[in-house]
Design a protein around this nucleic acid. Structure first.
Length: 563
RNA sequence: UGUCUUAUGGUGUAAUGGUAGCACUGCAGUUUCUGGAUCUGCCUGUCUAGGUUCGAAUCCUUGUAAGACAACCA
């Protein structure tokens, strides 16, 4: 009988980890595990990439392997160094270190040599038809294609033309190199796929104008894996149909027992947002958002600016898992993950977003008391600080009601509430302007109920946050909501730009925060007591404090009100 | 009228032929100097029809539904 030495239940493996363990058990590739994260440097990384990053780097870490960063830079028309730098920054921010940085462009010569080999074996040919003609001959998924008239060109001619494709003698678009496989295959990718095309109009971000013939994805990606020694090439579901071709190329060139294995998993879809680079680019280009790092964007830099922690993103990705089912993940789960993370780490501070003056009428006008308050009740090591209390305060307008329903536990005439970390006060009335708008609220404090004193234990239903009017700092606060107003914008027949949530950003200019926030640093995270998690926007200056709302606190009163 | 893939509560995900569990959401309560957090309980599920088996979410067949594939993109 097998003795179980470990009584902690084994965490169930996802199907990819199960494959990896089986491959290890079977002794494949000498027990080596190597993955890669292969972004194209043509845009910023988003949370969907984070899912892939966590898998690629996570598998390598868990199984004693390595993970490289490889830029799949085979299309100079779209790619730029700007993106290379941001991609590196985002991966590091997520907490991962790559073993090496590689570029598909590092392999242009090797790829070229192998293509020449393929031509010599009669397995590739130069086609000089137009893109339209080639597309027409490809057939459709249900109708097989027909062969190109150039398909049986002599090898020597193919070789000669291939050289010309790269020398500048052949105009962009005039010729391509195609593999000679099977125009009748039920898999479209086998119908003589394109291997190389000519691009002369754009310099490559690393090789300039050195190359004019550029390899295409199916050929370059798989062979790059092979050159590097990748054992598990993890990608999203849409590449499933490409796998037979991936394997076909490996079969053409492999010369040992080693072979990389492509495994596909489900991409990340989030409700109320879009995850397509193309759509994100349009939002940026048409100034529908401020930029790639707009806090409403699902980009890594957007989430970072919004106040998300790397931990929150990891927690979220752990929760959604990896399967082969095309799922729609509730953005509420992401929001839960960030609350869970920030709850443990964010310092609690007082900020009043929609201020109204509260005057403690029996408190001396010239008196100021420094009140001690806890930085984070979830973290004993976070310590305490002091905040000033005085006769004139600001509280939230929503925390006062003249005629309040029974379940309203806040400021209303005749009712006692606690001012957090200060005194219990009783509301005595308010002053309104001609329009009926509340101008000032009045209350009286009970000296014996100062926080920490025995009388402060008295039961009151509500606790309010506040700031001292003369000490508070003015701040701008940006409130964000979901970028789109409908759950699945991608499934909607309308143009996605018509589906944007018009209220996704609300800027409040007249907010007050407690004085300890003076000098707060960019991206620093706080909990504005009773309101939500906020961080310091990088646009903050010495003169102007700007905060972003990461996510609100759960609000059961708001729910109650909706009934 | 093709190929490949998928289907477990509202959402996501486990159970690897042996008691359908977890998280989020929702609801009810507990507790609280945050209507937060905590803690407790509850609601809700194996796409259909057959078959194999002592036993099927799991294996097989069929049907249904959904997704991917027809870029000189990756």
């Amino acid at each position: 009988m097998e003795a179980k030495t470990d009584d902690t239940p084994k965490k169930s493996l996802n199907f990819i980890e199960a494959f990896v363990e089986q491959d290890l058990k079977d002794g494949k590739n000498d027990g080596r595990i190597q993955t890669r994260f292969p972004p194209e440097p043509n845009g910023y990384l988003h949370i969907g990439h984070a899912k892939a990053i966590c898998l690629d780097f996570g598998i390598a870490r868990n199984y004693n392997g390595i993970c490289n960063l490889r830029f799949d830079d085979t299309n100079p028309v779209k790619e730029d160094v700007e993106y290379v730098d941001s991609i590196k920054e985002d991966i590091q921010w997520l907490g991962y270190k790559w073993e090496n940085v590689y570029y598909a462009s590092d392999y242009f010569q090797q790829l070229w040599d192998l293509a020449v080999e393929l031509i010599k074996q009669g397995k590739a040919y130069i086609d000089e038809q137009s893109a339209e003609e080639i597309a027409k001959q490809k057939g459709t998924p249900t109708v097989s294609g027909i062969e190109s008239p150039y398909r049986n060109r002599p090898i020597s001619e193919n070789l000669e033309l291939f050289l010309k494709m790269n020398s500048g003698e052949i105009a962009e678009g005039a010729m391509v190199l195609r593999a000679k496989i099977d125009m009748t295959s039920s898999n479209m990718h086998f119908r003589d796929p394109l291997l190389y095309r000519v691009i002369t109009s754009h310099p490559h971000h690393r090789t300039g104008y050195t190359w004019k013939a550029y390899p295409m994805y199916d050929y370059a990606h798989g062979q790059s894996d092979y050159f590097e020694g990748v054992t598990h090439s993890l990608c999203t579901l849409e590449f499933e149909v490409h796998r037979p071709l991936y394997d076909w190329f490996i079969d053409q060139f492999k010369n040992s027992d080693y072979r990389p294995r492509q495994i596909e998993f489900n991409r990340l879809n989030l409700t109320y947002t879009v995850m397509s680079k193309r759509k994100m680019l349009l939002l940026v280009q048409e100034a529908l958002v401020i930029g790639w790092d707009d806090p409403r964007m699902p980009t890594i830099c957007g989430l970072r600016r919004r106040g998300y922690s790397p931990e929150a993103i990891h927690n979220f990705i752990d929760k959604i898992g990896y399967t082969k089912f095309e799922a729609q993940n509730d953005i509420g789960l992401l929001e839960h993950a960030v609350r869970e993370s920030l709850n443990k780490t964010a310092t609690r501070v007082n900020a009043v977003l929609n201020p109204v003056k509260l005057i403690v009428t029996n408190y001396p006008a010239d008196k100021v008391e420094m009140m001690e308050t806890i930085n984070n009740p979830e973290d004993e090591t976070a310590g305490v600080r002091t905040i000033p209390f005085s006769r004139e305060l600001y509280i939230e307008r929503e925390d006062f009601m003249e005629d309040a329903p029974k379940k309203f536990f806040r400021m209303t005439p005749g009712q006692e509430v606690r001012l957090k970390s200060a005194y219990i006060v009783k509301c005595t009335g308010c002053k309104k302007d001609e329009a009926g708008e509340i101008e000032e609220i009045y209350c009286e404090y009970d000296e014996l109920t100062k926080s920490g004193m025995p009388e402060s234990g008295r039961k009151v239903k509500g606790t309010l946050h506040w700031v001292s009017a003369q000490h508070a700092l003015k701040a701008e606060v940006r409130l964000y909501d979901r970028l789109f107003s409908i759950e699945n914008p991608s499934a909607d027949p309308r143009d996605f730009r018509e589906l944007l949530n018009p209220d996704s950003l609300k800027v409040l200019h007249n907010c007050f925060v407690e004085p300890t926030l003076k000098g707060a640093k960019a991206l620093e995270q706080f909990q504005f007591q009773r309101l939500g998690y906020f961080n310091v926007d990088p646009e903050t200056t010495a003169e102007k404090l700007i905060f972003n709302r990461t996510v609100s606190l759960k609000d059961s009163w708001a729910k109650e009100q909706q009934r």
